[in-house]
Write a protein that binds this DNA or RNA. Structure first.
Length: 859
DNA sequence: TTCAGCTTT
DNA sequence: TCCCAAAGCTGAA
């Protein structure tokens, strides 16, 4: 927003002078002069931790400058001449491609938030006011700016500059509402306009202008409406009747500047003087706008003001870079145009300070200044030098700027690349509170991600300590994360590592943020769906398939008999048991929804057997890419390559069918967690057979975290008694409990399904065949489970083959049809749940448990 | 490629 | 008592 128009124009060696800006201090006006403002700010900040950190950052910039100057000193004249030739060649090419045909407009609302607030409360118009809080201001009105009160300044400092300053809290809903009205107008000039924020947008009005030429005068005629200030009630549409004279008291347009020129009397800057033939005389309250770009933009601004009683400034130029610079030129409530010819562009660029150019900020300005570059002319003259000292991207950018070039087509941003949330607070030093906060952030972020249907693989934790030092720590996991639990599982490990890094000192934080990036593309998602539904026969419908998909799937399945997988049969049996055992008890273990969830509702849409034969659809189980038109050999080779590329990891990356094995859950978390609080959990097998299925399990010191789709179950192990823990776990799962279970008071009280879980040495129940094993020895038990699993998958694959006509074989043995070849078998190793995620502190130390290797390949 | 920090808006 | 969100760049590993 208006941070741009508040961009400091004068560079400074002082870390704080950047808060200075235009201080127009008109004669007779109340306000402060520059020195006074500087002094007040300095007094208010000097010695603070923030100040110390700013000085530190300043030092770092100085070091960068020194480095670049050293590099410069090493350059020979021949290097520079060589570079000159290259750069000039490039400049020539850029010149050749210069496009002056588009008419790009950058529109920026004046002091937007402040103006909206003043519109709501006209009393504020006569007072210095700002929008924000004591910690930070978003913007200020022009009266407050005379005191040096500016955007991005903390409120408490602003108060020192201007004790009478009124600080109004932000109200985004209100700003969004007004923004919507403004955007409706933008859309009439360019339906593909690009909003940058609530108060700023780029428009390409080239097409509009062409069309405009054919418009009759009537279409360019607007009646000036009265603007009666009411709370949040802007003026009627511009063409409405019943207007009042501008001189009347109620007609307070524009809202922002009582001393600014009224719209129609506005002093047009010399460059933007319209062709006298172009503008037509207003008659009474009507005004007719001409057909030129300037007239169209004036009309747009007029309509914005009429509709919202807020003013906007605009820049008109052949490209986005120039348009943006222009919109700042006659701010507030003005516009500026650069005619569409090369000379006009070069004239405009000539003395333009580089700092005015979007993309060149405080640091870049200082670096360039150290090299003697302050204007765009300097930028052009030093082009060879810059090409040797800066990265390619940077010097290309500099060259473009110095030629007055910029993007000529307005492109909406591509797909979002990350999503984050962060919070600033007064110091938090207790680890417990930090984890709690981290969870809260994960929760918020998960909700936001859910709204946009995003899932990513990289979780970044941002921490700012009380010394204002910012740290970011990222962790990329092999599985997709999107739920609170999934994000938290990664984030909390990063946090833990950071807490431990400063131990025994506490980590003293003032900000924490969580970000998720590395989003799966639409294609990935599709393939992900394809592979998971292929491999998973028991995922609750809403977790993987949309309702529509599910319906379609079911319809497509209709001609085929409902097939029960080995696992499903076992599950169904357990369900039955569960239901029977819970009859008559309060708090039934499984809801009807749960029951539904145990039946195959999310199968891969199956084409008929013939179809399958005709159109082999090889989806690689590793990279999830559909490998169409490949022959078997190529496909297997592809999988082998994928496997060799794919990082070894915990079970979380396994396709869902393999996740069945996760129920063989060891409570030993990589060895370091030997102090698992609970009672006998250490190195013990926790066999969990919940009525719902396919959970990811994560155990840390105190928490067992079971994740399934959007559901996250957390069981605080610390607060579970060893006797009841298995029940706690199974109960939670049986009820699909989503709440965080904490403390005994929150434990589920209903009668537990007695057979679904077991803990400890006395009862080990095989999660596959569901029978109790007469052993307390872990190895023996694991062996049994392995045998069961292999048996199970074999049966299931056979069934699959019968039902789909697709031939599958187990790589560890011969294929069951006798037609397979083991020579080029591809292997998909299902890993034991040693670790479920990467611990940032020991990223490389992933646990790979032996045994239970399922090798399968598709044929 | 990934990560961490920085810059910019 | 000095914000928040997102993107892009850079240098290092």
């Amino acid at each position: 927003m208006d941070q741009q128009d508040e961009k400091e124009t004068a560079p400074s060696n002082d870390a704080f002078q950047y808060r200075m800006g235009l201080n127009d201090n008109k004669a007779g006006m109340e306000g402060l002069d520059k020195e006074k403002i500087n002094k007040i700010i300095m007094d208010a900040t000097k010695g603070s931790r923030f100040y110390e950190n700013e000085l530190k950052k300043d030092q770092q910039v100085k070091q960068r400058i020194e480095k670049i100057l050293q590099q410069k000193a090493l350059l020979t004249s021949s290097q520079i001449s060589k570079a000159q030739i290259q750069v000039d060649r490039m400049a020539l090419e850029l010149e050749r491609r210069r496009d002056l045909t588009r008419v790009i407009v950058h529109v920026d609302m004046d002091a937007f938030y402040a103006a909206v607030e003043m519109r709501s409360n006209p009393e504020l118009k006569e007072k210095p006011m700002a929008v924000g809080s004591m910690s930070m201001l978003s913007t200020s009105n022009y009266l407050a700016r005379r005191f040096g009160v500016r955007a991005a300044m903390p409120g408490f400092i602003a108060k020192k500059l201007c004790p009478n300053l009124i600080i109004v809290p932000l109200n985004f809903d209100k700003y969004r509402e007004v923004s919507k009205e403004v955007r409706e107008i933008f859309a009439e000039y360019d339906p593909n306009f690009l909003p940058l924020s609530l108060d700023e947008a780029y428009l390409d009005i080239t097409d509009h202008l062409e069309e405009r030429l054919t418009w009759p005068e009537e279409r360019r005629r607007y009646v000036k409406a009265s603007i009666v200030q009411k709370d949040d009630s802007p003026a009627g549409v511009a063409t409405s009747t019943g207007t009042c004279e501008p001189e009347q008291d109620q007609c307070t347009s524009p809202v922002l500047f009582e001393d600014s020129p009224s719209f129609l009397n506005e002093q047009t800057p010399p460059q933007s003087l319209p062709d006298p033939a172009d503008i037509e005389e207003p008659t009474e309250n009507a005004v007719v706008f001409g057909t030129s770009a300037e007239e169209a933009v004036k009309e747009m601004r007029f309509r914005i003001e009429q509709k919202t009683s807020l003013t906007a400034s605009a820049g008109i130029a052949p490209n986005m870079m120039l348009a943006k610079v222009c919109s700042d030129k006659n701010k507030p409530n003005g516009q500026y145009v650069i005619p569409h010819d090369r000379q006009a562009v070069m004239d405009f660029i000539k003395d333009l300070p580089i700092r005015k150019v979007p993309g060149i900020g405080k640091v870049t300005e200082k670096m360039l200044q150290a090299l003697g570059v302050t204007t765009c002319t300097d930028l052009y003259q030093q082009r060879a030098l810059l090409s040797l000292l800066f990265s390619e991207i940077s010097w290309h950018n500099f060259l473009n700027i110095s030629l007055g070039l910029g993007s000529t087509h307005i492109e909406k941003d591509g797909e979002r690349k990350s999503m984050s949330t962060e919070r600033t607070f007064s110091e938090i030093s207790s680890a417990e509170e930090q984890y709690e906060l981290c969870r809260e952030l994960c929760k918020d972020l998960a909700e936001d991600l859910h709204k946009e249907g995003l899932k990513g693989r990289t979780v970044t934790l941002k921490l700012k300590n009380v010394k204002f030092e910012v740290k970011t720590r990222a962790s990329t996991v092999s599985h997709i994360v999107c739920t609170e639990g999934e994000i938290f599982c990664v984030a909390k490990d990063i946090l833990k590592a950071e807490i431990e890094a400063v131990s025994p000192e506490p980590l003293r934080l003032r900000l924490m943020g969580v970000r998720v990036s590395g989003f799966t593309s639409e294609e990935d998602k599709k393939h992900q769906k394809s592979i998971t539904s292929f491999l998973c026969t028991n995922k609750p419908a809403n977790k993987v398939c949309s309702d529509a998909t599910e319906k379609a799937v079911q319809e497509r399945q209709a001609p085929y008999p409902q097939r029960e997988s080995f696992f499903n049969q076992k599950r169904a049996a357990r369900q039955q048991e569960l239901l029977e055992s819970s009859v008559g008890t309060a708090g039934t273990a499984c809801t009807s929804k749960d029951q539904n969830a145990t039946f195959p509702v999310c199968e891969e849409p199956k084409a008929g057997a013939d179809d399958a034969k005709e159109k082999p659809d090889f989806t690689c189980p590793i990279c999830l890419m559909k490998q169409r038109d490949w022959d078997l050999e190529a496909f297997n080779k592809h999988i082998d390559e994928c496997l060799s590329k794919s990082p070894s990891s915990g079970f979380s990356e396994m396709p869902n069918k393999e996740k069945h094995f996760q129920r063989k859950l060891t409570a030993n978390n990589g060895g370091n967690e030997s102090d698992i609080h609970t009672n006998n959990l250490k190195n013990k097998m926790v066999s969990i057979t919940p009525c719902d299925d396919l959970y990811d399990f994560v155990i840390d010191k105190n928490t067992l975290c079971a994740i399934q789709g959007d559901q996250t179950l957390q069981i605080n192990l610390k607060e579970c008694s060893s006797k009841n823990m298995s029940q706690d776990i199974s109960n939670s799962m049986a009820l699909g409990k989503q709440a965080v279970l904490k403390g005994n008071d929150k434990h589920i009280k209903s009668t537990p399904p007695s057979t679904s879980a077991s803990v400890g040495e006395s009862t080990l129940i095989c999660p596959v065949c569901n029978t109790q094993q007469d052993t307390t020895d872990l190895t023996t038990f694991n062996r049994h489970v392995d045998i069961c699993l292999n048996k199970g998958i074999l049966e299931e694959l056979k069934e699959d083959e019968v039902n789909t006509g697709r031939s599958l074989a187990l790589g560890i043995h011969n294929d069951s049809t006798g037609k397979g070849s083991t020579s080029n078998k591809s292997t998909l190793r299902s890993k034991r749940p040693g670790t479920t995620h990467q611990n940032p502190a020991s990223k490389k130390a992933k646990t790979n448990c032996a045994g239970n290797t399922i090798e399968r390949f598709f044929k």
